[in-house]
């Protein structure tokens, strides 16, 4: 049986996820997305994984959501509120979502996962650090390179050559 915290978190997370996609304004949408990501961080706390929860808050709620918010502010005002979607496509999308949820849900409920519970103590977060520095160190180095490469790539992509030239002539 689920407890009240779990129920509140699920309502917050799923409600904010729907709001992020359906709110008219993109700015409110990105704030709702922040709520959904914070809700997932709450689930991580419920799962006794405080380290992943803190990481989620720092990376998702702290940086990604703010990045998205700034990008939304760079876009022209009327585009933030515009809503172009085909009603037919919308109903098809809702149907697809319901089919997927009911199909996967019934599959999972029928499976043996229903009886899985645990009384064992949670994993110590020090183990994660050990994992990172022993078994996963090549992946850690690779991830650092990918992050550096992607940030550099994003900067190169978003650079405005005309503005850079103006500054050079000054």
């Amino acid at each position: 049986m689920v407890d009240a915290t779990f129920l509140a978190l699920s309502v917050l997370t799923i409600g904010s996820a729907i709001a992020a996609l359906e709110l008219r304004s993109l700015i409110y949408g990105s704030i709702a997305l922040m709520g959904a990501l914070a809700g997932v961080a709450g689930f991580f706390l419920l799962l006794d994984s405080p380290f992943v929860a803190m990481f989620q808050i720092a990376v998702y709620v702290g940086s990604i959501a703010v990045l998205i918010l700034f990008t939304v502010m760079l876009v022209r005002r009327e585009l933030i509120f515009i809503k172009v979607e085909d009603p037919k496509r919308r109903y098809a999308g809702i149907g697809l979502m319901l089919v997927l949820m009911v199909g996967l849900g019934s599959l999972i409920i029928d499976s043996g996962l229903k009886s899985v519970t645990t009384d064992e103590p949670p994993v110590d977060f020090r183990l994660i650090g050990e994992d990172f520095l022993t078994y996963y160190w090549p992946a850690l180095v690779l991830m650092a390179l990918i992050l550096a490469g992607s940030v550099t790539g994003a900067l190169v992509l978003a650079r405005r050559e005309d503005v850079a030239d103006e500054q050079r002539t000054d």
Partner: peptide
């Protein structure tokens, strides 16, 4: 699964 469904809808 609910989050996955919402994401695919979007």
């Amino acid at each position: 699964i609910a989050l996955l469904g919402i994401g695919i809808y979007g």
